[in-house]
Amino acid sequence: MDFLKAFVIGGLICAVGQLLIDYTKLTPARILVSYVVAGVILGGFGLYQPVIEFAGAGATVPLTGFGALLAKGVRKAVTELGLIGIFSGGLTAAAAGVTAAVVFGLIVALVFKPKSK
């Protein structure tokens, strides 16, 4: 059941992205930025947490989940540290993902070569 929920919610979030690609002039980069910012806003209003509780990875894996994670991190940091928390909360929450992308990116660049298409 949890798999189905994750599949459907995650799939729907992606399908919306596809509609934006097909029917608007938005470039993929703009769509991704909108998704992250939307995630921060939804997370900030506390609207995204229920989706995560319902769909698990179906809500955390799409980039909106990344945005909600940033919001959650900054909220935690501000609660614990006061105002200076706005400078550390977001990146702290995103640390694992960003570091993983950078490190694996470097490894892949060392090991592989781009292939002709």
Binding site: D2, F3, L4, K5, A6, F7, V8, I9, G10, G11, L12, I13, C14, A15, G17, Q18, L19, D22, A55, G56, A57, G58, T60, V61, P62
Partner: peptide
Amino acid sequence: VPLAFLVGGAICAAGE
């Protein structure tokens, strides 16, 4: 759109 739904959903299900 259905393909985006299926592939995106599959990635999320794998994440789950």
